[in-house]
Design a protein around this nucleic acid. Structure first.
Length: 412
DNA sequence: TCTGGGGTCCTAGGACCC
DNA sequence: TCTGGGGTCCTAGGACCC
């Protein structure tokens, strides 16, 4: 098996930089301290992506813009542009599909490519990787790292090595000197909580983890211990999945409100706007959902959630909203609300669920379908609930409006 | 902390059944 | 009830990824 992992370098920032150059900008954002960041006014002021010069000031992804500016006062901050990112992501994916029939989109800026069968057509893996990397640079305007190995895990680890615009291999025989000296935090699936536990028992490098008794790890970390022990030893048999093989398990939208919500009616407005987005996405999947969940984050950052299973699966905006209101009322403890979220899951394909027994729902189904068609043709704002018209609240809340595609299973 | 939004998977505890 | 054991389902929360 020969697997490539292709990772766009500081994706959001590079894509914005490439667009601006194309539009005639004189400075390349990648060459100055810059970040893609949210808006502190809307209480979403965090760093989403950073340039390499910004990184040299110690700016980190996920920290607040306030902190980032403390480290680098002359930081250029650019708001995110998700439509652009989707276009760039699609372009990269389509380019990769020219080199293999097995390409898995792992996230907006990462793909796995199974090169095993491609070797007889395109030659040595290293040469093909170089061709792909250079084509993306010259034709799409941004750089990528490509990791090459015998499985997805090692390919992904390899692409994390020196950046940007680099190709690295990490074959099993290279683990000892390329992978094992690295700190455990660098290993895929070792996050904050796990690294803290590992460091506590004096496991500090990936190599030390690889040489720890796996049964001991299991008592400490349950099944997760076995997962990371395998990864530390470069063991991973997961295949590269084409996108159509991946079934999405759930979908949701959430939003941080620019102010704290303190009354029920206001909360309902945001919940309705979120339900509009979630239910439209659900219907675009041609699925019904059986589980609905509402989550709340309070002004003091306490999160809690409440879910319920439906007796009758649904995809109706009104049906989902009624459940959402009920769940919200059952769980809200009247604290000021900072953030609201809705998610639906336990999908049933509409093709396998005949609604003929429930003819009374036909009308509302037709209504939802008609609304979806009008919005698709004339834009989401062409048809909105009247309760939003004289409010300052957007009738849709939540980010995903473009064509959905399944990504990011935490199993590689 | 001026602290996002979209996902997946796992686990613990309780309810319920035989 | 001073009572058991095993299975399944449901729920809430946490860990991880980008």
């Amino acid at each position: 098996m020969i697997i490539f992992h292709i990772d766009a370098n500081s994706a959001y920032l590079s894509w914005e930089a490439a667009l601006r150059l194309e539009q005639g900008a004189r400075t390349d954002l990648r060459n100055i301290p810059s970040v893609i960041g949210g808006d502190p006014e809307k209480r979403s002021g965090i760093v989403l992506a950073k340039s390499i010069p910004a990184k040299k000031y110690g700016v980190k992804t996920g920290e607040t813009l306030y902190e980032a500016r403390q480290k680098c006062p002359e930081l250029t901050v650019i708001p995110p542009n998700y439509d652009l990112y989707l276009k760039c992501s699609n372009a990269m994916y389509e380019m990769l599909c020219l080199y293999s029939s097995k390409v898995q989109r792992y996230s907006i800026d990462e793909c796995f490519l199974d090169y095993t069968e491609s070797e007889k057509i395109f030659g040595r893996p290293i040469d093909a990787a170089l061709t792909i990397k250079e084509r993306i640079k010259s034709e799409l305007g941004f750089t990528v790292n490509i990791g090459i190995s015998a499985n997805k895990l090692l390919a992904k680890m390899a692409s994390e090595f020196e950046k940007p615009d680099k190709i690295h291999t990490l074959f099993p025989e290279e683990m000892e000197f390329k992978l094992w000296p690295l700190p455990i935090e660098d290993l895929f699936m070792v996050g904050r909580a796990t690294s803290k536990k590992l460091r506590k028992i004096n496991i500090n490098t990936i190599g030390e983890l690889a040489h720890t008794n796996v049964l001991y790890l299991k008592t400490l970390l349950k099944s997760h211990g076995i997962v990371i022990w395998n990864y530390a030893n470069g063991i991973d048999y997961s295949p590269v999945h084409n996108n159509d093989e991946i079934i999405q398990k759930g979908l949701g939208n959430s939003t941080t409100i620019p102010f704290d919500i303190t009354n029920r009616e206001e909360a309902y407005m945001f919940l309705l706007a979120l339900t509009e987005r979630v239910s439209m996405r659900l219907r675009s999947f041609n699925c019904l959902c059986s589980l609905i969940s509402v989550s709340i984050k309070t002004d003091s950052f306490i999160r809690y959630s409440h879910q319920a299973k439906l007796n009758t699966p649904t995809d109706s905006t009104t049906g989902i909203f009624n459940s959402v209101k009920k769940l919200f009322n059952e769980v809200w403890k009247c604290e000021p609300i900072r953030h609201l979220g809705i998610r639906v899951s336990e999908f049933i394909s509409k093709d396998f669920y005949q609604l003929s027994f429930f003819d009374s729902t036909e009308n509302s189904q037709n209504l939802d379908r008609t609304i979806d068609m009008i919005r698709k043709k004339y834009g989401d704002r062409s048809l909105v609930r009247s309760c939003f018209i004289h409010s300052n609240i957007s009738p849709f809340q939540g980010g995903v409006n473009e064509e959905d595609y399944p990504m990011m299973s935490s199993l590689l």
